[in-house]
Simulated assay, not measured.
Amino acid sequence: MSTETVDAFQALADRGRREILMMVAKEKRSINAIAENFDISRPAVSKHIKILQNAGFINIEEKGRERYCVLNQDGFSEVQQWINLFEEYWTAQFRSLENYLATNVPPPKK
């Protein structure tokens, strides 16, 4: 079993993998249940799931003969950190603009 780490953004780049995450976000699902939603082979779906698992987005739980995909909240931390960087940047830019307008632009005449 490979434990190769996959870049989070590379894993999210594929629409099918994003669809799998949306399904698993609603409830844990077996790999067979996920595969039923795609027009590709089960091994191809399993490959996508393995990429999501290696990227840390999902965990696999085994119950009897079934394997279930469960969303892993911790897997999203890299993406959240990246988004937070830009959120902080834009928040600072808007604050700066707000301060500039408050001190340099006269109020409109009535």
Results as ranks from 00 to 15, higher is better:
Met1Thr: 11
Thr5Ile: 04
Val6Gly: 00
Asp7Ala: 05
Ala8Glu: 07
Phe9Leu: 14
Gln10Thr: 08
Ala11Val: 06
Asp14Cys: 10
Gly16Asp: 05
Arg17Val: 02
Arg17Ala: 01
Arg18Pro: 02
Glu19Ile: 05
Glu19Trp: 03
Leu21Trp: 01
Met22Thr: 07
Met22Arg: 13
Met23Ser: 04
Val24Thr: 01
Ala25Lys: 05
Ala25Thr: 05
Ala25Gln: 07
Lys26His: 06
Glu27Gln: 14
Arg29Asp: 10
Ser30Gly: 15
Ile31Val: 05
Ala33Phe: 01
Asn37Trp: 04
Asn37Val: 11
Asn37Ile: 11
Phe38Gly: 06
Phe38Leu: 03
Phe38Pro: 08
Ser41Asp: 03
Arg42Glu: 15
Pro43Phe: 12
Ala44Phe: 08
Val45Gln: 03
Ser46Gly: 11
Lys47Leu: 14
Lys47Met: 13
His48Arg: 15
Ile49Trp: 02
Lys50Gly: 05
Ile51Asn: 02
Ile51Met: 06
Leu52Ala: 00
Gln53Trp: 11
Asn54Val: 01
Ala55Arg: 04
Gly56Ser: 09
Phe57Asn: 02
Phe57Arg: 04
Asn59Thr: 07
Asn59Glu: 08
Ile60Thr: 03
Glu61Gln: 11
Glu61Cys: 14
Glu61Arg: 11
Glu62His: 13
Glu62Arg: 12
Arg65Met: 12
Arg65Val: 14
Glu66Val: 05
Glu66Asn: 06
Tyr68Ile: 15
Leu71Pro: 00
Leu71Arg: 00
Leu71Ala: 02
Gln73Met: 10
Asp74Phe: 04
Asp74Met: 08
Gly75Phe: 03
Gly75Glu: 01
Phe76Gln: 01
Ser77Trp: 05
Glu78Met: 06
Val79His: 03
Val79Gln: 03
Gln80Glu: 11
Gln80Val: 09
Gln80Leu: 09
Gln80Asn: 12
Gln81Phe: 01
Gln81Val: 05
Ile83Thr: 11
Asn84Gln: 15
Asn84Thr: 12
Leu85Asn: 09
Phe86Val: 05
Glu87Asn: 15
Glu88Tyr: 01
Tyr89Gln: 10
Thr91Ile: 09
Gln93Trp: 04
Arg95Met: 08
Glu98Met: 07
Asn99Leu: 02
Asn99Tyr: 08
Asn99Ala: 13
Asn99Gly: 08
Tyr100Glu: 09
Tyr100Arg: 07
Tyr100Ile: 08
Leu101Phe: 13
Ala102Tyr: 11
Asn104Leu: 11
Val105His: 08
Pro106Asn: 07
Pro107His: 07
Pro107Leu: 10
Pro108Leu: 14
Pro108Cys: 13
Lys109Met: 10
Lys109Ala: 14
Lys109Tyr: 13
Lys109Phe: 10
Lys110His: 09
